[in-house]
Design a protein around this nucleic acid. Structure first.
Lengths: 200, 200
DNA sequence: AGCATATTTCATCATCTGATGAAACTACTC
DNA sequence: GAGTAGTTTCATCAGATGATGAAATATGCT
């Protein structure tokens, strides 16, 4: 007998934080659509109703646990961080910046990555973020007055290269890419982004 | 009154094919985990039990509708198709070959792509296919006797670039990449794969 | 002490999921 | 025409899911 869980607060435990942490893990494992609130509750060792007590629903939980954490700051500062310095090394700086952000927030970034595919909303957000906020600004900054089609192509190819690197390293875990030293990747992939952003 | 659906065969309709087609569409929209057999049945305008009548279960349906169709033939022939020709244009041929296969089987390929993220099994299969069957062979063929680490890195980077292109074009639909003419992509991305596979 | 507030659990809903067995129906063979 | 095999629908199951409202408990305030 006895194993009935007592109700009421448990001292010294930050349940909300535990739920957030568990949610990040679940979203990172299976993506938005396949993650269940009950699964999150189970992973957090908590009653499912508690998840609803702290968050409005699945959308809100995803926003709080993943999206808010994935961004290190305002997008514009990311873009300008990439732009700052010599034109010949934009590519290197871009890869270095991204890898830095990704590695530092690995699990929430992985969750975001896995959710691109399951949720059209997330896909749209990532598309707009990458093309408008980041690479669009960078390309326009490097070469103002470029016609729209060429600008989109350059920004898109750079974004695709970045996504490929992310997918290969965190989702598919390609040997050689998943276990490479970050700076190795910067040296190899940097010139590629450079070529996309500022052809010859 | 009247609206009860009659049982028994419907002449002239290939129901199994309709289910396969609907399944491909659903898997392509939301990936393996988020696709339900009932959703497939609904999309095919068919009773859910019929899906079970024709297929063993979700795994089987996925295998029949997506996996079997995604491969144009034995992997080895894909690899040799890429190798055939001048060394200086392996990159171009690789991108051209892949884009050709993808465009021709777009919806089943999209389903595969979306399922990489939701199913660890699919991810493993894709990883092994890309690194061992395709780019592993290509790199080894181009430069035999390369040490394992370097071979994995080159193959992995090439695979990552290909996946990025696929994600950008079919899943995230980056403007500039999603709507580009295939040959434009070949011309821009080809040199990148070339650089990964055969550095300088 | 007593009271208010926030936290946690329980019980329950309607809905969806994959799955199965049986019944109705059609088309074909003899 | 009777019978058989294959196709389709229906009824139903157990389990999971998102969600809600109410009860129980602990903590902090006065």
């Amino acid at each position: 007998m006895g194993a009935e869980a007592r109700r009421g607060p448990r001292r010294g435990e930050d349940t909300r934080a535990a739920i957030l942490e568990a949610a990040r893990g679940e979203f990172a494992r299976t993506g938005y659509a396949a993650t269940s609130l009950r699964g999150v509750a189970r992973a957090a060792g908590v009653d499912p109703a508690l998840v609803h007590h702290y968050f409005e629903g699945k959308d809100d939980l995803f926003a709080q646990s993943v999206v808010l954490v994935s961004l290190p700051g305002p997008p514009a500062s990311l873009a300008s961080q990439v732009m700052e310095g010599s034109r010949e090394e934009v590519g290197l700086r871009a890869v270095r910046t991204f890898l830095g952000v990704w590695e530092a927030r690995r699990s929430s970034f992985e969750a975001l990555l896995r959710s691109i595919v399951t949720s059209e909303e997330v896909a749209r957000a990532v598309r707009e973020f990458l093309t408008q906020e980041i690479f669009g600004r960078v390309v326009s900054g490097l070469e103002p007055g470029l016609e729209e089609q060429e600008r989109d192509l350059r920004a898109g190819l750079a974004a695709a290269a970045a996504m490929g690197l992310a997918m290969g390293r965190y989702v598919v875990r390609l040997p050689g890419v998943a276990d490479a030293d970050p700076e190795t990747l910067v040296q190899r992939v940097g010139p590629v982004l450079q070529g996309y952003l500022l052809p010859r």
